[in-house]
């Protein structure tokens, strides 16, 4: 079971050579090798693939999936799942635009036709509100899962319909457009020559990686995933930890929605549909076990990058979209197969 680097450190009897071999055979390294091989092969097919411009653009495009995949890794490590992330994403996008356009602060009211509003909602407040609503949506998931003991898959399946429905109902399926210029900086602008959202990926990835592997909180998630009852008996506040990670998931969906609205400059109630499957595919490709207890942020990031680069590289090599998703499906199965095979062999030794 000792597959995370952290747990390796705890094994003092292991010789340095054994450690090195274990490190080389760890999930992340194997996945990294698979990724490098794939990217190397694709680079021979198009000279436009490994250019700075293209790589930065791809970084911009994968920001939303990467950000949502971080908390999804936490959740899957505890043996849970969150199918509602795409719906929360849509709800937050709608709430961002809707509150900005329709809420009046003085007098406090929801605007209607011909309504005279003295103080409009500042866009900054709408952004914060949208992210808060994401957190709330995640907390609702977490509360039902923890307190009422609804299995995560069922709970988030139900809220998938509920949150998407709320996005549709609140927006009345209308788009909100015409944001001020500064708003587009996050989604379409650059900071120090690099797309703004890539900085966010870096910051949140580092925070998540440290949180997961270097804190008691993070380690307790592995314990919950391996044996929830055991974790509870050893004094871990299982319920609280779970509430926190589902709320974290909602928050990241909200932030991702903010980035996305800023990138595409409009809101739609169907935004983010199908996002959950893309995210889950990246997380499991990154070596996180769907049964819980195993996984890492580095692995998830490798998973996200592999899928994005595969799609992009195949496209640049002249492969069309239908053939691309065939290859992505094959790679997903093959990577997990190879990885599992090597893990089992090294585990048996």
């Amino acid at each position: 079971m000792a597959q995370t680097p952290l747990m390796l450190d705890k094994n003092p009897e292991q010789s340095t050579g054994g450690r090195l071999r274990k490190l080389l055979l760890s999930q992340e390294v194997i996945l990294f090798i698979i990724m490098v091989v794939a990217i190397g092969l694709l680079a021979t097919r198009s000279d436009r693939f490994l250019t700075q411009d293209n790589l930065l653009t791809q970084g911009r495009l994968m920001a939303e999936i990467a950000l949502v995949a971080l908390p999804m890794t936490f959740i899957i490590i505890t043996g849970g799942i969150d199918l509602s992330v795409g719906a929360i994403f849509g709800l937050c996008a709608i709430m961002l635009g809707w509150t900005w356009e329709n809420i009046c602060l003085s007098p406090i009211a929801i605007k209607s036709r011909g309504f005279e509003c003295a103080v409009n909602m500042p866009l900054e407040v709408s952004i914060v509100l949208a992210i808060l609503i994401g957190i709330l949506a995640g907390l609702v998931n977490g509360w039902f899962i923890v307190k009422i003991k609804v299995p995560p898959l069922i709970m988030t399946l139900a809220t998938l319909a509920l949150y998407r429905g709320m996005a549709e109902g609140i927006s009345q399926s209308r788009s909100v457009r015409g944001y001020p210029d500064w708003f587009y900086q996050l989604g379409q602008g650059d900071l120090f020559g690099i797309p703004t959202q890539i900085w966010l990926i870096i910051v949140f990835s580092i925070i998540s990686a440290i949180w997961l592997s270097r804190t008691t909180f993070g380690r307790s998630l592995y314990a919950i995933g391996n044996n929830e009852t055991g974790a509870r008996f050893s004094g871990i506040a299982v319920g609280r930890q779970k509430m926190i990670i589902y709320a974290f998931s909602g928050m990241m969906a909200g932030i991702a929605a903010w980035i996305f609205v800023s990138r595409v400059s409009t809101t739609r109630s169907d935004m983010g549909s199908g996002l959950e499957l893309d995210v889950i595919a990246a997380v499991v490709l990154g070596g996180t076990s769907i049964f819980g207890g195993v996984g890492s942020i580095v692995g998830t990031l490798i998973g996200v990058v592999t899928i994005q680069m595969l799609k992009n590289g195949l496209s640049l090599a002249g492969v069309t979209g239908d053939a691309t998703i065939i290859v992505v499906g094959l790679v997903l199965i093959a990577a997990v197969l190879i990885n599992g095979f090597i893990q089992r062999r090294s585990g048996a030794r």
């Binding site: 436009r48 788009s175 595409v264 409009t266 199908g274 979209g321």
Partner: peptide
């Protein structure tokens, strides 16, 4: 899907074509 469609167009811009024909999933997002 608006997001996927944008990614496809980005890919073809990188690839370098002379012209793009499109049918938009969303008039503003694209």
């Amino acid at each position: 899907n608006i997001d996927d469609q944008i990614a496809f167009i980005e890919n073809y811009i990188a690839q370098g074509v002379n012209g793009i024909l499109f049918a938009a999933n969303d008039p503003v997002a694209i």
